[in-house]
Every structure is written in C-alpha cells, then in structure tokens.
Design a protein around this nucleic acid. Structure first.
Lengths: 336, 336
DNA sequence: TTGAATTACGAAAACGATTAAGTGAGACTT
DNA sequence: AAGTCTCACTTAATCGTTTTCGTAATTCAA
C-alpha cells in the first residue's frame, strides 16, 4: 500500500509537503501541488484513515445502536427506514456509519460505551426498544456526542416522533368517521407506548368518548399472534368496539385475520387502524388507515443534529425535536 | 482519554510491558500483569483501534455494499434479512461492519474501492442489484478479500440463493396442484432474474407445460404498480393463466389487487405465488405460497466465508456456495 | 563454580499521517 | 544597503500502539 512517504521520496520532497499538497494547504506552490497530486494518483495512493484519525482525533465514523426485540434494528421496518435516511444524510457530509456491536454473548465483548470508545466514534445515534438497558444508560451518560430517537434523556438531544399528536390525530380521525366505541391494543411498555396510550385516553376524554377498561389491551409490537388473540377477546365482548387501533401495521394484520376468521368484514362490520405507515400497508386490501411516521425526517434530523453536535458543539442546542406524522386514510375505517 | 503511556507511568513500567500485559503475552510476570490490568480498569483505559490497526494492518472492520434500486439495501426486505444474519455472525467473531458509502452525488467522494482502502476493511461483502456498475467491478477486481451475494464473479467467492432449484420447485408445486396454464411476471434483468427465468422455461418444458409468449412478462422488483398492470394484461387474455408467479412477495400484492379489482377471487378463480418468503406473506389473506429464500443461511455463510478468506487465505477455497430455498405452502394456490 | 537456559522486563523503531515552528531565497520598502 | 515580507518548503515531534531485539537477574545443569 503506497503511503505519503513513497510519494515524497519519488517526488524528492518531504512528507509534510505531500500532506499539505494533498490536503490543499495554501503554502505549497501550484506546480508542486499539481505534480504531487498527479504522482499520488499514478502511484495509486490511498490515504489511511487510521493514521489520519490517530493524529486528528476525528474518525468521521458514527456509531449506530439500533436494537429491537430481536437484537437487531435491521429487520424492523420503522428502524430500518429511519436508519436509511440517517445513513443517506451523514454520507452526504462525509461520515460513515458502523454498528455498535450488540451481540451480547461473546465472552470478551465490550459494552456499548467501550466499543464506542474503542472505535473513537465522533458521535452515536441510538434507537432502542429498551432504553433502560444499563449499557445504554452508561453510553448516554458518557461525553460522546449523541442523539436518541424516540426517547428523551436528561441533557441529551432527542429526535422524537410525535406520538402524542399522532395518536390524537388518529383518534380524531376515527371519531370524525363516526366511531364512538374505540378499542386500542397497545404495544409493550416503553416511552413510545406510554405517549400513545396517554394521548389515547386524553383524546377520548376530550371528545367525550368513554373507554371501557376491556377496550384497552396489550400485545407485543409486530406480533400478529398477540393481536390475533386480543382481537378475539374484543370481538367476544357483549358490547364490542366498532373500531380497533393497533400497535403497528404489522401487528394489525393479526387483528385483521382474527376479524376475518370470525366472519366479519372490514370495514363494513368493524374498522381497524394501524400505526407506522409501513409501505406495505397501502398495498393490500383493505388499505390500512394508519398514522404514518415521518421516518425520512426523523433520520435526517437525527443526522443533522448529531453532526452539528460534533462540529459546532458550542452553538448547538441540546433539545428535543418533535417530528409530526400524518394520518394516511385508507379503506379500513368505515364512515358510520 | 487515557492511553498505555498513562498506565505505564503510573505503574512505573514501560509501555511495552503494558501492551504485553493487556494482550496477555506470556513474558510478563503474573503479578505485574494483574496489577497493570487492574490499574487500566481503574483509570478507565480504552484501547485505540486506530493506533492498533495502524500497527497491525488489521481493522476487524468489514465493508458492506448493499445497494438496491433506491441506492440502499436497508429498506429492502431480502437484503436486510441477509445483512442482519451476516452482522450477527461477524459480531460473534469480533468484527464490526461499516457501510461502504454509496451516496454518489458528493463532489469529493471516493469510489467503492477507494473507500474500502481508505477504511482498510479486512474484507468486503457485496449484494447489489446492479453488479455491472463499473465501481463494483473495480472493487471486485481488487485484492481485497470479498464475497458476493447472488452474483458470480471470476475467481471470487459467492454465496448464491438457488434460484434455479427455487423456481423449479415452485413450478413443480403449482404443477402438482394441477395448474397447466402458468404465467410468470419476472423482475428486471439481472443474474437472479435470468436464473429464475431460464429455470422457469426449462421446468415447464420438462413438465410438458406450454408457455405462450404472452404469459411471460416483466415488471420491476418490489413494484406493485408494475405487477398490477401486467396482471391486468394477463387477465385480459382470451386464454388467461390459472396461476401467476410474481417477482417477489411485495410485487405480488400488486397482482393480488389487480385480480381483486377485476372481481376475481384468490385462489378460487386464479392462483398466485410470490418469491422470497417475506415475513409478512404469511400474515395476510390469502397466505402467500412463496419460495422462501434462506436469508439466515445466506448471511451466515457469507460471513463465515469472508472471515475464513481473511484469516486463513491459503486454505480457504474460492468457491460458490449455493443455498437452497423452500416452498412455503400458503393458501394462494388452488388445487385443481 | 561456570556456563547455559529461562524469566521478566525495557529501549526503540515503526505504522502513516498532521502540524507547529523554523529556514532560506527572493521581492519589496525606505 | 539594510531591513522586512512572503513564499515555498523542511524539520521534527506527535498521535497510541505493537513488536523485535536486547539485557539483567535468576535458576539450573554438570
């Protein structure tokens, strides 16, 4: 692998000159600069990021911790979309991303923080199901520039999908469609779940919609079996709801199947709505009414915030940025 | 950030001794070793991967190039699942993964190869829609340990989903269900598409199934609009097929919608089958009959192969490994 | 007792870059 | 003519490791 030293000996100049020429410093003559660059290209020179970052203390590499229930954010539609947008944005600015190793079974493994220090990430982004993991907390309490997604920590930047408004809008939507018996199968406990749940209760109260205790049930996120069972219970009530809200679009499929299995029609007999705005939700029948979270914006803002935190720490506010979603009106909620 | 030097001055030993103690070399006394390690922990020492890899020429970092039509493999279900499995496997072995920057619009950007050299990846894995991208070819022709997924290059390792057998099995399945008028809407041209298409023709021929030219059509992968339109054309034929095969499960939804829109029932009036075995395919009605590609195995084998290539180059075969899929029998193909 | 082997550690170079400070030559000012 | 600038480089230190070679002290064999 050809280094600056090779170029310098070939050109008969010092390595300092080569470095400056390649980095376009002003105190190098134009011809020398051009010559050195030409030679570098011809010799197939490749800069060494390790050496560079050793000296400059900057890696231009960002750590990503995306962990879902299955210990991976990659197969999680929402996470994957946010990450995709995050990735695009940071790449435009010359940063790379590396996953923080979340395989917890290796013996000699490092904690998230140790790993982040080892790789000297310039910054870290976190999206988790379990933000109460001690290792996550350790990372959050560190001095590494960091933004979290959908969870708020003290004195840390957060990009948050507006679950309060999202759920409110969704409830208003079904209310406006005439529904007054609205059930909600919510996901497992988390900050996100809590926001949506309290917003659900609050909005119903404001609208004067009564919510029987049996109407509110829990099932894991993205789990069709759980929602299938809870939906069955809802349908078996003597006074069943006319509309059921689900934790997410995928889980909603479990509910749809339970409803179909009972011989009911959607939306004629019963209405359903999801959450997330998964791409697929618009492509099957019934087209899901859902609250589409703005994953593009979430990822982009997380990236921009993180880079600002890294590059201009003094002038970057530590703040929470809330990203609004949008009700996607499908055919799964009937006007009554 | 505390370094070995800090530890060495604190302990009154040389940095060499600290290095050896922390790396568990045998020529350091037991008490010294224990003491140094203790101090390192107390001082909050963190090794510097950049310095380490500068010296050792090993980064324990792998480059990932996953590019789909939308310039990102993250939101592509099949790619994301393969990558997830790949990631788990390499993490178990102490490797990290970093994406090869595929944002092509930046002015000062590096080519895939330049980027890989810059980061000094120990190896690279590639899964692409367009393997004929000159930059991909440049990377493949380099001396970097590399495995490709679903595409074969000269003298390079490849992990390949068995599209030949997959399509054969799928055709046999629908044949065994009694279908003789089988249409195939295939994806855009690529190695994968070609394998499936020729296998389709071949298998039909072997089975004595005649395939009218109008039965074979093209639509982009994962595009519901394209399959919707092509399906409409198929349905409008004077002698329409009884079963339609689709490029993938997602695209299949487009076909399903077209069929429903015409007032036909699946599978009573017409049968459909997908490809991929997307998780979602099992959760809506009709449950899709599909060929499930073994993404877990694909990712795992790619990871193992790549690491072998890196760690024991002499004894690792350059070979193609074929991974078989499996027909998942749903309810979308009727027995006739 | 002497020479050889073993043990435990240190000195120093090297990896490939960056950068502050220094230097010599020529141009310009007064 | 002497001093002052600029320009275009070079010198050398440094970042945090690893690793080869050396060496002093101790143990062992004969």
């Amino acid at each position: 692998m050809v280094s600056m030293k090779d170029i310098s000996t070939f050109c008969g100049v010092s390595v300092a000159t080569v470095s400056k020429a390649l980095n376009d410093h002003k105190d190098i003559g134009e011809e020398t600069k051009a010559h050195i660059r030409q030679v570098a290209k011809e010799m197939g020179y490749s800069p060494n990021s390790a050496a560079k970052s050793l000296k400059t203390n900057r890696t231009y590499n960002l750590g990503v911790l995306f962990v879902d229930e299955a210990m991976s954010g990659l197969t999680h539609d929402y996470f994957a979309n946010v990450l995709d947008s995050f990735k695009r944005t940071v790449e435009e600015q010359g940063y790379d991303i590396t996953f923080i190793n979340c395989c917890k079974k290796r013996e000699g493994r490092m904690s998230y923080l140790e790993h982040s220090r080892y790789r000297r990430f310039d910054g870290v982004v976190i999206a988790c199901v379990d933000f109460y993991d001690p290792e996550v907390e350790e990372l959050v309490r560190s001095d590494i520039p960091l933004v979290t997604i959908d969870h708020l920590f003290n004195n840390r930047c957060a990009i948050i999908s507006d679950n309060i408004k999202g759920m409110r809008d969704l409830v208003h939507y079904v209310y406006d469609m005439g529904h007054r018996k609205i059930a909600y199968i919510h996901g497992a406990d988390s900050a996100v779940t809590q926001s949506r749940l309290s917003s659900f209760y609050l909005t119903c109260e404001e609208l004067g919609v009564e919510v029987p205790a049996q109407y509110v049930r829990e099932a894991p996120y993205r789990d069709t079996k759980g929602t299938y069972e809870e939906t069955e219970k809802l349908l078996a009530l003597k006074n069943p709801p006319t509309c059921i809200l689900y934790p997410d679009d995928f889980a909603c499929l479990g509910g749809i199947n339970a409803i179909n299995a009972k011989g009911f029609k959607i939306p004629e007999d019963i209405s359903v709505a999801g959450y997330d705005g998964a791409r697929i939700a618009r492509h099957f029948e019934p087209q899901l009414t859902t609250l589409k979270q703005d994953t593009v914006q979430l990822g982009r803002l997380a990236a921009e915030k993180l880079i600002n935190l890294i590059e201009k720490p003094k002038t970057t506010l530590v703040e929470q940025i809330v990203v609004k979603g949008e009700v996607i009106s499908g055919t799964s909620v009937k006007k009554i």
